[in-house]
């Protein structure tokens, strides 16, 4: 209700609403959705990365500067601006670097029950995390440093997509100490 807000005078003055619409319910808001549909063609390293998913393989790129491993492979080390062409295969195991419990549904994702847990998954051997869902345990049990492994789709459903990994489930292994989990490990390397 506009009336309940103090007027930011003197920038604003009372607007004279035309008499012909003074007695009808005023419009106070409008829907103005923004939508962009576009054709996405991944870069060559990401093409290779996505195709490898169909063989249940996860690829990364190793920096020629310091050996840091990036996943997904983007073809460059963004810290140094150098090209990368060394491909490394990564295991489908790692730990939770950070996570978030979300209580709001994603439009169009009716398969995803709320609340769900999304997390930065740090694969063993990778120096950065990538996003995934964590399930297979109570949401309350998810914690920074928790060891997880990929749960893949059935063989016949595999495609050239990261969606082949349905979610990440706890392995039951001892957790990584929180101050060494996720990107915090970068500090320890130096």
């Amino acid at each position: 209700m506009t009336e309940s807000h103090p007027s930011p005078s003197p920038l604003s003055k009372k607007v004279e609403i035309p008499e012909s619409i003074r007695e009808v319910e005023p419009v106070r808001s409008i829907r103005s959705p923004v939508k962009l549909v576009y054709d996405f063609v991944p870069s060559p390293p990401v093409q290779e990365y996505l195709r490898s998913y169909s063989k249940k393989r996860i690829l990364g790129h190793r920096s020629p500067i310091d050996g840091a491993v990036f996943v997904p492979p983007r073809g460059v080390d963004p810290r140094h601006g150098v090209l990368i062409d060394e491909v490394v295969e990564l295991p489908d195991r790692g730990h939770v670097g950070n996570f978030c419990v979300t209580h709001l549904p994603i439009p169009g994702r009716d398969d995803l029950d709320t609340p769900y847990v999304s997390a930065w998954i740090h694969l063993d051997g990778a120096n950065v995390g990538f996003l995934g869902l964590v399930a297979g345990c109570d949401n309350d049990e998810v914690h920074i440093g928790m060891r997880v492994q990929a749960v893949w789709k059935k063989e016949e459903e595999l495609g050239n997509t990261a969606e082949n990994i349905l979610f990440w489930k706890p392995t039951g292994e001892p957790s990584i100490p929180p101050d060494e989990a996720g990107n915090r490990a970068w500090d320890h390397d130096k």
Binding site: S29, S32, P33, V34, V41, L50
Partner: peptide, 12 residues
């Protein structure tokens, strides 16, 4: 590979 992607914001 290519995919049709959609970015959409349901602003009011």
């Amino acid at each position: 590979l290519r995919a049709e992607l959609t970015v959409e914001y349901p602003f009011t």
